[in-house]
Design a protein around this nucleic acid. Structure first.
Lengths: 268, 268
DNA sequence: CTTTATTTAGAATATATTTTCCTTTTTTTA
DNA sequence: TAAAAAAAGGAAAATATATTCTAAATAAAG
C-alpha cells in the first residue's frame, strides 16, 4: 500500500476509510482532521493525551494508512503547515492589500465579522443581564419569530430545551397561533425575535402579551417601531446585508450569549 | 534574562543582538530568520546540517537568548506556525482585554469571529461553485436539518423561496418524513445540514437519497462520518463552542454565501 | 607567545518512538 | 444464548533518536 504523500490526499484517504476504522482509530481520525496543527507540532505523547488515546494507537493509525511509523505520517502534517505558510507569505509579498485570490467571498466574511463587532460594541451588559434574569425567572418561555427570524426562534427552542427550560415555539401551525399564545401568563416571558418589516403575527402577539402583562423580551434590528416600544427589554442586533440578503451570524451569536447566560444563571 | 515569548519579540531581539554575536551564532541567526519553518518543524540535527553548524551551536544560540535549551526556543517558532491559523490568539492580541464594557462576552465574539475566519480559510471555492451549480440545476431543493441544524434548514427555506426556487423543508411533521421525501427525484437535490451526533432522520434521508441517485449536498462539521461519505458534495463548517453550546454564526454565513451565489447564478 | 573565547566532536543524558505482550472488547459460530 | 475466536486496546519495556553536556582543539585577542 502506498501512503498518501500530501495532506489533501491523506485527508481524502482518511475520509474514505473512516467507516472501516475501529473506535479508537476513528477517534484519532477526527482529532487529526480537526487539529492538524497539533499533529504537526506536538510529540506523539502530547497528541495522544489531547486526543485521549494511547501513543501506540497513533502508531497503529499511521500504519493503517500505510506509513512506516508515526514520524513518517507526521511529515505530511508538517508539510501542510510549511506550504500553508509559504503560500501566505507569497500572497502577502505579491498582493499587498486584500487582493488575494481567495478573496471572492471576503464581502461575506467581512460583513459578518463587522456585524459581530458592532454587536460587541453596542451590546449593553446591563440590559443583557436583565434579559437573562427575566428568562431565568420565567416559568415558560414563549418564542415568536417569523420569516427571517424563525430560524432564531427555532434555535432558542433547541437550546433552551437542552437547558431543561420550559419553552413553547409559537409556530402557528394549523392556524392556531392565538390558541397557542392564549395560555401565556404573567409568570412567563414572550421572547419575540423580529426584523423589519415586522410580520403581522409578531406584532399582534407582542400587543396581546402587553395587554395580559406578560413580560416581553425583544430581539430586533431597530429600537424603534411596534416591537421595541412594547417590549420590556429590547436587545438590538443588526446583521450584515450582502446583495439583498441578510445573514443571521450576529443574531445567532447574541442568541448563544443569552443561552449560555441563562445556563450559567440556572446552575447557581 | 527573560527570553522572548513570541516570534516577533524574538526576531527583534535577534536583530538587536546581531552585531555582538560570534561568527557561528551569526550564521545561526541568519538561518533562523530566513528559515523559520525549518526551525519549527525539523530536529536540531537536521537544522544544524542545513545551517551548516554543529548541533551544539544551536543550543548555545538558544542559551544566548535566555532560553533553557533549544527545545524551549523552538517552541517560539512552533507557536508562530500555529498562530497563523489560530485566529483566537490573533484577535486577542489586537483587542486589548476588557477595554470595552462587554468584555465579559469576548469569548463569544472571539469564538464566532475565529470560526468565520476558519471557514474563510478552508472553504474551497471549487466545491462551493459545484454546490451552487447543482442547486441551480435542481428542479426542487429538499432541505433536511434536525436539532441544531434545523434553524439552518429553515433559513434556507426562507431564502430560497425568496429567490423563487422551489424548496421543500423536510420537517417530518405528523410523522410523515418518509412520505415527504419519497417524491425526491434525480432532477432534485437534497441539501442536508447535519452536525455530530448526526440525527437518525438525516442519516436515513441521505441514505435513501443515495439509493434513488438524488444528488446530496452536505453541510456538516466533519468530513468524516455517514453524511459526508454519502454526499456528492460536502461543505465543511465548524462553529465555535462556548460553554458547551455551539452558535450557528459560521454556518449562517456559509448559508448566506450559498443563497447569494444561487441568486447570482439564477439571474444570468 | 600566552591567554581567553569560540568551536568541534563525541560521550552522556534525556526524551520520543516503537514493539511486545497481556487484557479487554467485539464478532462469529455452535 | 453461550462459548470460542478474532480483533482491538492498553501498559510498559525496549529501542531508537534527539538533546545536552564535557573536554579537547582551534581561532582570536592581548
Amino acid at each position: 500500500m502506498i501512503p498518501s504523500s500530501d495532506f489533501n490526499k491523506l485527508k481524502a484517504e482518511i475520509a474514505d476509510q473512516f467507516p472501516q476504522l475501529s473506535k479508537r482509530l476513528k477517534q484519532v481520525a477526527e482529532f487529526a482532521l480537526s487539529n492538524p496543527n497539533d499533529m504537526a507540532l506536538e510529540t506523539i505523547a502530547i497528541i495522544a493525551r489531547k486526543a485521549e488515546v494511547q501513543p501506540s494507537t497513533l502508531i497503529r493509525f499511521a500504519k493503517f494508512f500505510g506509513y512506516d511509523g508515526f514520524t513518517e505520517m507526521q511529515r505530511i502534517f508538517k508539510g501542510r503547515l510549511a506550504s500553508q505558510s509559504d503560500y501566505k507569505a507569497r500572497i502577502k509579498a505579491f498582493a499587498p492589500e486584500g487582493e488575494n485570490p481567495t478573496g471572492l467571498y471576503d464581502d461575506f466574511f467581512e460583513g459578518s465579522i463587522s456585524s459581530l463587532e458592532e454587536l460587541r460594541n453596542q451590546l449593553d451588559p446591563e440590559t443583557l443581564n436583565q434579559a437573562i434574569e427575566q428568562l431565568k425567572n420565567a416559568d415558560t418561555v414563549y418564542l415568536a419569530g417569523y420569516r427571517r427570524a424563525f430560524p432564531v426562534a427555532a434555535y432558542f427552542q433547541y437550546a433552551f430545551s437542552h437547558l431543561d427550560k420550559k419553552v413553547v415555539l409559537l409556530h402557528g401551525l394549523g392556524g392556531m397561533l392565538e390558541e397557542q399564545a392564549r395560555v401565556m401568563s404573567q409568570s412567563d416571558v414572550l421572547l419575540a425575535i423580529s426584523f423589519r418589516e415586522h410580520s403581522e403575527e409578531v406584532i399582534s402577539l407582542v400587543k396581546s402579551a402587553g395587554e395580559k402583562e406578560v413580560p416581553v423580551i425583544a430581539v430586533t434590528d431597530s429600537g424603534l417601531g411596534p416591537i421595541a416600544s412594547k417590549a420590556s427589554i429590547c436587545l438590538e442586533v443588526k446583521d450584515a446585508k450582502v446583495q439583498g440578503f441578510r445573514s443571521l451570524s450576529a443574531t445567532m451569536c447574541l442568541a448563544l450569549i443569552l443561552v449560555v447566560g441563562l445556563g450559567k444563571e440556572s446552575l447557581e
